[in-house]
Simulated assay, not measured.
Amino acid sequence: MFTGIIETLGEVQDLKKEGENLQITIQSTLTHELKIDQSIAHNGVCLTVVGLNDNAYIVTAIEETLKKTNLGMLKIGEKVNLERAMILGARLDGHIVQGHVDQTGVCTDIEERDGSWVFSFEYDGFKGNPTIEKGSITIDGTSLTVVDSATSAFSVAIIPYTYEHTRFNGYKKGTVVNLEFDVIGKYVAKLFSSHLPLKE
């Protein structure tokens, strides 16, 4: 379980295919605090530490994860949003994030507004994942509040601190991002759809 508050940025040091899986080596200031079997969110994807080496650590993304997220698009030297699992009893500064990406989206517009930024995204709305204005959304592991919402599109506002300390400063139009929709909203949508009358 995570909060969507990014702790730091890691850097991809090495990528190695293992059958259909991908072994990812990440250089990070967090490495000295990690241990084998620990869970860390990488761009919002929960992965398990399988190896430690000086200031870098290793995780493995399976084929299913590579198909549903942007991890298969990573390149050596690329920055990755990192967050360790939340501590039970600590403040929940973001929102409840599972580290299970629902689908990817694409950045469609970036607008600077006097010291802040508004980022717009589109995604496949037919997969049934809802957003609502002022609701929560996780983009590459970052907990954010939806500004505008449509069936298959939404926008978020980014303050300077978030822009400087996450992957947002590297986004461009066409950038593919990982999306995890609000877990409570997903359950409500599922329950609501299951009670709709059947169309004849």
Rank of each mutant, 00 (worst) to 15 (best):
T145C: 09
V146Y: 13
V147E: 12
V147A: 10
D148M: 06
D148T: 13
A150K: 09
T151V: 04
T151D: 06
S152C: 07
S152I: 01
S152H: 11
A153V: 04
A153T: 04
F154Q: 06
F154R: 03
F154D: 05
S155I: 01
V156D: 06
V156I: 15
I158K: 02
I158N: 01
I158H: 03
P160K: 02
P160M: 04
Y161P: 10
Y161E: 08
Y161W: 14
T162H: 00
Y163L: 08
Y163D: 12
E164P: 03
E164T: 11
T166I: 09
R167G: 12
R167I: 13
R167L: 12
F168P: 02
N169Y: 10
N169F: 15
Y171A: 11
Y171R: 04
Y171G: 04
K172H: 08
K173E: 01
K173H: 06
G174F: 05
G174P: 06
G174R: 07
T175M: 07
T175E: 14
V176E: 11
V177E: 04
N178P: 11
L179F: 14
E180H: 13
F181H: 04
F181Y: 12
D182M: 02
V183L: 07
G185N: 04
K186G: 05
Y187S: 10
V188A: 06
